[in-house]
Amino acid sequence: MFKLILKFQDTVIEEYEFHSTPVTIGRRDDNNVVIDNMAVSGHHAVIEQEDPNFYVLVDLESLNGTFVNETKIARQRIFDGDALIVGKHTLSFIDLRPVEERPIKQDSVPEGVAGGPQFRDTVILDTKAQQELLAKHAGERGISPEQLAEKPKKVDLYGSVTIISGGTPEIIDLTKRLTTIGKSSDSDIRCSGLLVGKTAALINKRPNGYFLAYAEGLKKPEVNGESVTTQVQLHDGDEITVGSTRMTFNLREEIS
């Protein structure tokens, strides 16, 4: 025997008394507790009994999850005074049995492996709810909304190569994630020379820098005179040779 008090932002909406289980909670009409709100799943959660004398709240894989006293749960024993949170609504759980018939609340052991990660479920929130949650979280850490609105500082990399010989002298900005070097007319940087592959090498822009990789052809690319068989990170001033084409690599970093 227990009572549920349905609240929305501290306003009591309804009180229910139940003498048997299961008691279902959800948005649809066929639930024992109907909460008409889009944040609540059709069949959101259920209260069951567990031997010898426990009440248990079970989340029915709801979209936004079920919480007991602000902790997300999959299945958890509930005790007199617990707050069950479903969507934006709270259900206060009041055990109506005589005190001696109620179980004793112990610090509950997390679900899943002892000491391991807790049972988890992914949640989708709309953009507004996300922003509110982020601001609240930041606020708890003493960070103001203004600070939060500032874009994080990040380092932008600007790489370029300058053709020195064996091709048209020019500077090519490496703005693409992948810049191809080779004999093929599709190559971003055309090279000549015996045994140079159609795609002889690729320069890959990664978050941590630029990398030159060997692709195909018998003639391997060289960086500072060293033959590249897989890939090497490029540094400002490096000299790249592919066949008879020589070029230098330049790297500029900007903090934005």
Partner: peptide, 10 residues
């Protein structure tokens, strides 16, 4: 953090 369970794009 519980925030790791909340998706920002889906």
């Amino acid at each position: 953090s519980q925030l790791r369970h909340i998706l920002s794009s889906v």
